[in-house]
């Protein structure tokens, strides 16, 4: 099953399609996640691997949101980060999990086959209803940029 040095072997999708072999740190971690409509969801803040005893680990979820980013910023900065977020969102800070079968492509950005998980939009929605919508012109589209 050696695919040699072919293009799909190298961790990038030359167009749609999933690579056969890839490096997680290079091709998945810290990449932008876009949902099916091209809306930015967040970054792949971490990747979860899980296994049954005696079997190979498998990629079980992409993790995103501050709950996954916090632990990565370990050290003093990371701890401050976690305390700060704990205060903002006291209701436990579990990362958002995206199952790998919802991924359309990994690189250059992670594209999903579904709309964004609702938990990723909590802060966005709060700021929208409490601040941005109240400023005149907030719903105005920047037509020239389209």
């Amino acid at each position: 099953m050696n695919t040699g040095r072919g293009g799909d072997d190298t961790g990038h999708g030359a167009g749609p399609g999933l690579p056969r072999v890839m490096r997680l740190g290079f091709a998945v971690l810290d990449r932008q996640i876009l949902d099916v409509d091209g809306v930015a969801v967040g970054k792949v803040d971490d990747v979860e691997l899980s296994w049954e005893e005696g079997r190979r680990p498998v990629l079980s979820a992409l993790l995103t949101d501050t709950g996954a980013l916090g632990p990565r910023l370990s050290g003093r900065l990371g701890r401050t980060w976690r305390t700060l977020l704990g205060r903002l969102r006291p209701s436990g800070d579990l990362p958002v999990r995206i199952p790998p079968d919802q991924v359309h492509t990994f690189t250059p950005a992670t594209r999903l086959t579904r709309p964004a998980p609702p938990q990723t939009r909590v802060v966005e929605d709060w700021l929208r209803t409490h601040l941005i919508e109240r400023i005149p012109g907030g719903g105005h589209a920047d037509s020239d940029g389209q």
Partner: peptide
């Protein structure tokens, strides 16, 4: 460990292949 290499299985899932 610099990186984790995974490979796609026939069922579409990715399994661990090894470490760089």
């Amino acid at each position: 460990v610099h990186d984790i290499v995974v490979r796609r299985r026939d069922d579409g899932g990715y399994e661990m292949a090894g470490f760089v």
